[in-house]
Design a protein around this nucleic acid. Sequence first.
DNA 1: CAGAAGATCTGC
DNA 2: CAGATCTTCTGC
Length: 199
Amino acid sequence: MRRLTKDFYARDALTVARELIGCLFVHRTGEGISAVRLVETEAYRGPQDPGSHGYRGMTERTRVMFGPPGRLYVYFTYGMHWCANIVCGGEGVCEAVLLRAGEPVLGIDGMKQRRGCASPFLLAAGPARLAQAVGISREDNGASLLRGGSLWCAADEVTPRYGSGEIAETIRVGLGAGRGDDLPWRFLVPNNRHTSRRR
DNA sequence: CAGAAGATCTGC
DNA sequence: CAGATCTTCTGC
């Protein structure tokens, strides 16, 4: 298992979002290690993206997204949910990848506990579910995914099986009209049961 | 300073 | 399908 480095994240969010599919997202806490295999991501691209929180420039909330790549941008929404993004691009560039869904791999008992839910297909199928499953919230905003931290992404021998030209690209979820809702910046593993918005 | 919308999820 | 629930931003 190979921890992804700063060079990986220091590219545009579209590339990173695509290449994160099949990678592991890992969080080590006092309770143990939790990990999901990412099966769905979305790219958000700052000033060129009306759907991005950073579209109108830096604010207190979006400060982390304008900083160096390889950090976590965590935001709160709908009065009760936390969602996790990975900051991409160069320093000063507002780009990020929203972690939308994953397949539980490690620490599944802890995920069930945190989520208050038993079905493996509802543990991390959605950005707020994923964040809750791996124990991400306010205090993780700005945390580094780079060497030494307790939070990271990794590639392993299984990762390539999720990519290799079979990744689907669709429009993003949950954006209002005119807010970049027509851009194909969502990446997912087709027919994977752990993605969000299945039907 | 007030109002509205929000990168969502759950239960009815 | 509507309610939960509160932060952030915008406009007045």
